[in-house]
Design a binder for these strands. Structure first.
Lengths: 170, 170
DNA sequence: TCTCATCGCTTCGAATTCGAAGCACCTAGG
DNA sequence: CCTAGGTGCTTCGAATTCGAAGCGATGAGA
């Protein structure tokens, strides 16, 4: 951990990219969240979950898959899926091949909500994020961020660290 | 609001950029938050607040300025500044020229914590965000995101909407 | 087969977040 | 000077988040 802190300070350019990234995503997410709330009564997380399920070929995913896709804690996921289930937008069922697992599936109502919310979502996305830059910039942005994302995914075991080694890192 | 929903669906490229943005910032923030917590017992928000104050020429800012810079709600800001004050990292004092305003100032202890946390912060930043791409890509990323950010800042009045007209939007 | 460490998910309590309402102050109009 | 409306921040209650602990199921080794 404290192997070689000997690193040069980031340039202004690097810091600028970092700050801009944080602020843009923060602002964008905030605005989208409002839109989702107004139109479909969804939080951003709930939308992400529904969208992830909607993307799945069968509309079904395991809890763990959802957790990984959304970066949130397992307990938070349980909570949100619970809300979605109570709202009738998803259904939970025990996984067939593993009695401990839980499969989550979008319901038709869930797909309806998704469809209802999407246009507004896109509109905000366009207005805030896509409109101000040309398509070349978008392509570049996407390419760079994708590289970073793939790199990040490789580095840390996100949602499933070793449960608890009997020796801490110290 | 529903003036012309007639918009073409986003291309795969555009969606990719959007998703990558959300995931990268989410992952990055999450990891940085862990680092900050371990080293300085700071949450990301607290770090942002301290850093913002540290950047200010006099180490002092108004509450509202802080809220704008960090995008959070006013009440949340009050809460966090309260925590920082209790920890002795910042000091609150009534603004000189406006009795209702509150000036927040970093203390020496606050600057110490900031200094203690910074190297780790940078290390994570490098490892996750800067290392995987070359400096051209970083420059491009920063430029594009800055354009978007400036655009976003112009659009919505962030933390201080009209208090409440006597007629809602409905 | 039996045993035990591990895995997938949920429950629990604590911390953080937000919006609405409230309080004190400022500022313009009479 | 007095009043009315707007501004800056805080308080309050509800909702969401997380990590740690708990529970049943799984699977590898004896």
């Amino acid at each position: 951990m404290s192997s070689q802190d000997e690193q040069r300070p980031p340039t202004e350019l690097e810091l600028g990219a970092y700050f801009a990234l944080i602020e843009v995503s923060s602002l964008l997410r905030h605005t989208i969240e409002q839109q989702l709330q107004e139109v479909g009564g969804l939080s951003y997380v709930q939308f992400q979950l529904l969208a992830t399920l909607g993307d799945a070929p069968t509309g079904t995913r395991r809890m763990t898959e959802l957790a990984d896709g959304v970066v949130y804690s397992r307990s938070g996921l349980t909570y949100q899926v619970g809300l979605l289930e109570k709202a009738g937008l998803v259904a939970r069922s025990p996984a067939v091949d593993d009695e401990r697992g839980v499969d989550v599936t979008v319901t038709d109502a869930g797909r309806d909500v998704l469809a209802a919310v999407f246009p507004g979502h896109i509109a905000v996305l366009r207005e805030l994020f896509l409109d101000p830059i040309d398509s070349d910039a978008i392509a570049g942005l996407g390419a760079t961020l994708t590289v970073i994302r793939d790199h990040m995914r490789r580095i840390p075991p996100r949602s499933a660290r070793p449960r608890n080694g009997r020796h801490q890192t110290s």
